Amino acid sequence: MNDNAVIDQGHDGYTSEDHGVWRTLFERQAKLLPGRAAPEFIEGLDALGVEAGGIPDFERLSDRLETATNWRIVAVRGLIDDDVFFDHLAHRRFPVTNWIRKPEQLDYLQEPDCFHDCFGHVPMLFNPVFADYMQAYGQGGLKALEQDALGYLARLYWYTVEFGLIMSDEGLRIYGSGIVSSKGETLYALESDTPNRLAFDLMRIMQTDYIIDHYQQTYFVIGSYDQLFEATRPDFTPYYEMLRARPAIEPHEVLPGDQRV
């Protein structure tokens, strides 16, 4: 592991403007998410003790998270090398960016900041099954690097961890961090007639390209977190061999065998 990727959060260095951005983002998502976010996300957010007052101290959050599922948060400056990222996940450490966006960037960022990482990702790590899924994903990522198959696994992360939907007992809900941390995508993912919402299919997902600069054209819906975790159990090596022989599917495409949700 490249220890240089881990830094001190520098909590004392945040400005009043930084904390103000956190408050604005937190307050508007807190109003939107009840009835839209998965119950497990809401429960994790409550357990985390994150509040609207300002950017939280990562060490305090880590202590709560470690007690619940034996995960910890590590502060990083931004995007890190793939091998470092996967190693962190494989050892139940989640990298959280220490900087926060500027007021003029409230609705769009090219790279994740601490609101996306902390508010969007960390609450789901309180769910034991999802926490195990994330560790399994990290272990699979280290193998994918050796097999030159990272692109396929990146699609799985995108359509589950970042932009996943779940059919809960209360109906369709969001759990992906890229949705729960975004006002616009929260509403779009659930309430717009534009995107495709398709039942989870591991091979279909790993074959599907995605877009990074606009709302998603397709979302995949899991039935449970157990379904997600079980999908990561097999050795993906034969899957990668099959995928190499198949063309990529465009983000907007719906295939004859797809199951709409």
Score class of each variant (00 low, 15 high):
Ala47Val: 04
Leu48Ala: 12
Gly49Met: 10
Gly49Asp: 04
Gly49Ala: 05
Gly49Leu: 06
Val50Gly: 04
Val50Met: 13
Glu51Ala: 09
Glu51Lys: 09
Glu51Pro: 03
Glu51Ile: 04
Ala52Leu: 03
Ala52Gln: 02
Gly53Glu: 13
Gly53Lys: 07
Ile55Phe: 04
Ile55Ala: 14
Pro56Ile: 06
Pro56Thr: 08
Pro56His: 03
Asp57Asn: 13
Phe58Pro: 03
Phe58Cys: 00
Phe58Leu: 05
Phe58Asp: 03
Phe58His: 00
Phe58Val: 08
Glu59Val: 09
Glu59Ala: 15
Arg60Trp: 15
Leu61Met: 12
Leu61Pro: 12
Ser62Asp: 15
Ser62Ala: 10
Asp63Leu: 12
Arg64Lys: 08
Arg64Ala: 13
Leu65Gly: 04
Leu65Cys: 12
Glu66Pro: 02
Glu66Gly: 13
Thr67Val: 09
Thr67Lys: 15
Thr67Arg: 07
Thr67His: 03
Ala68Tyr: 04
Thr69Tyr: 14
Thr69Asn: 15
Asn70Trp: 02
Asn70Ser: 12
Trp71Ser: 01
Trp71Leu: 11
Trp71Pro: 11
Trp71Phe: 05
Arg72Leu: 01
Arg72Trp: 05
Arg72Cys: 01
Ile73Val: 14
Ile73Pro: 13
Ile73Gly: 11
Val74Arg: 08
Ala75Trp: 07
Ala75His: 07
Ala75Val: 03
Val76Pro: 01
Val76Arg: 00
Val76Thr: 13
Arg77Pro: 06
Gly78Tyr: 06
Gly78Ala: 14
Leu79Asp: 07
Ile80Tyr: 06
Asp81Thr: 10
Asp81Cys: 01
Asp82Lys: 07
Asp83Met: 01
Asp83Leu: 00
Asp83Tyr: 00
Asp83His: 00
Phe85Cys: 11
Phe85His: 14
Phe85Arg: 09
Phe85Lys: 12
Phe86Ala: 00
His88Tyr: 06
His88Phe: 10
Leu89Lys: 02
Ala90Phe: 03
His91Ala: 08
His91Met: 06
His91Phe: 01
His91Pro: 06
His91Gly: 13
Arg92Met: 08
Arg92Asp: 08
Arg92Tyr: 12
Arg93Phe: 00
Phe94Trp: 10
Phe94His: 09
Phe94Cys: 09
Pro95Val: 02
Pro95Ile: 02
Pro95Lys: 01
Val96Ser: 15
Val96Thr: 15
Val96Ile: 15
Thr97His: 03
Thr97Cys: 13
Asn98Ser: 15
Asn98Ile: 11
Trp99Gln: 03
Trp99Thr: 06
Trp99Phe: 10
Ile100Ser: 10
Ile100Gly: 03
Arg101Phe: 11
Lys102Ile: 04
Lys102Asn: 06
Lys102Leu: 15
Pro103Arg: 01
Pro103Gln: 11
Pro103Tyr: 01
Pro103Phe: 03
